[in-house]
Design a protein around this nucleic acid. Structure first.
Ligand SMILES: [Zn+2]
Ligand SMILES: [Zn+2]
Ligand SMILES: [Zn+2]
Ligand SMILES: [Zn+2]
Lengths: 184, 184
DNA sequence: TACCGAATGATACATCATTGCATTAACGGG
DNA sequence: CCCGTTAATGCAATGATGTATCATTCGGTA
């Protein structure tokens, strides 16, 4: 990846928010759920943790820890040590309000209810980077079945995917119609 | 993880090979399958790629790229640049003879036939580190179903697990019987 | 021979994450 | 209020993982 491409990837010019979606309200409600989750678990939602959470929830992307760091530094002018962000993220993970995407070494804010103990999987859009969560009960059940069938005692399961989100999945037809090609 | 624990994790004192298993033959057959896979795909199995593959296949663990590097350096006395190992691993991945475990940033040699297009998932033993592959057709089908149900066009799916392999899963009963405790 | 493309070597750098220890904030019992 | 305890943060260094860039080598080929 070239340095210039890297700049373009700061998630600023992405085709996020395909029209609808009140983002201010979306972030506020995420924050409210976070307060509840921290309260329920007896963990403290400190100012630092809240700032980190707002940064992650403020994007619907999965952000790397250093990306969070950069964004916070740009806003406040002060650069935290990486460990501070990692510690805050650990608390957010423990509270269940952010999740980690193993295949990207990145973190995203949970916008799913996770009511009960239902497991979800994360789906990452390759075009707009948006992460969505979908119920994964059948998937984890199948993993349990496949493991048990060979005598493996499964204790931790990871499942995640990437592709095109519903909004982006409809766009390639436009590229085709206009004669756009992917390889010059 | 403590530094001393790190040393213990060099995969040398692990309870690998719970009795049976002719490892020399196992590695040779893996190498033979690798030659075939490279031939089929029109990629060259160069000496460097073969050395890297032997190092990975010689362990039934998933090895990090730098662990491969260290082992090769210990054997030959010459230390490659990391990029050389990564490039070799890229070729091995392309040939399909090793797989990556996203949740560990590590690579293991494929010992499964993968006949046809059948997808497998990797299961990592938390005690002996052995990686096994099991058929994942149902799992990937469930991921496809869950994605399609919400309009997501899935193009890449990751599923992997950790826990206790069949051999290790039978051992904890011994620890219990002898009054062993996990927390002093 | 000259050329080309694939593979490798070599240096430096980028990105991801943790260890260790000092300092500060929060909270409850005297 | 003072003190002791614990959680949280600050700070410096380092470890662990992965890539960019350019030079060199090597095998085939016109
Ligand atoms: Zn939003
Ligand atoms: Zn999208
Ligand atoms: Zn073997
Ligand atoms: Zn085991």
């Amino acid at each position: 990846m070239t340095p210039s491409a890297k700049v373009d990837q700061q998630h600023s010019m992405e085709p996020r928010d395909h029209g609808q979606h009140d983002h201010g309200a979306c972030v506020l409600s995420a924050l409210e759920r976070a307060r509840t989750a921290f309260g329920d678990k007896g963990i403290k939602l400190t100012p630092l943790r809240q700032r980190v959470f707002e940064e992650i929830a403020g994007s619907h992307d999965a952000l790397g820890a250093y990306e969070v760091l950069d964004r916070m530094a740009r806003k406040s002018g002060e650069r935290l040590a990486p460990i501070s962000v990692y510690r805050a993220i650990d608390a957010l993970l423990a509270a269940g309000v952010v999740h980690r995407i193993e295949s990207k070494n990145a973190f995203f804010a949970c916008h799913a209810p996770h009511q009960g103990q239902e497991r979800h999987i994360a789906l990452v859009c390759e075009r707009c980077q948006t992460v969505i969560e979908v119920s994964g009960a059948d998937i984890f059940a199948a993993m349990e079945t496949a493991s048990a069938a060979c005598g493996f005692k499964l204790s931790l399961a990871v499942a995640e995917g990437s592709g095109l989100c519903p909004a982006c999945a409809t766009l390639p037809t436009i590229a085709q119609a206009t004669g756009m090609v992917t390889q010059p």
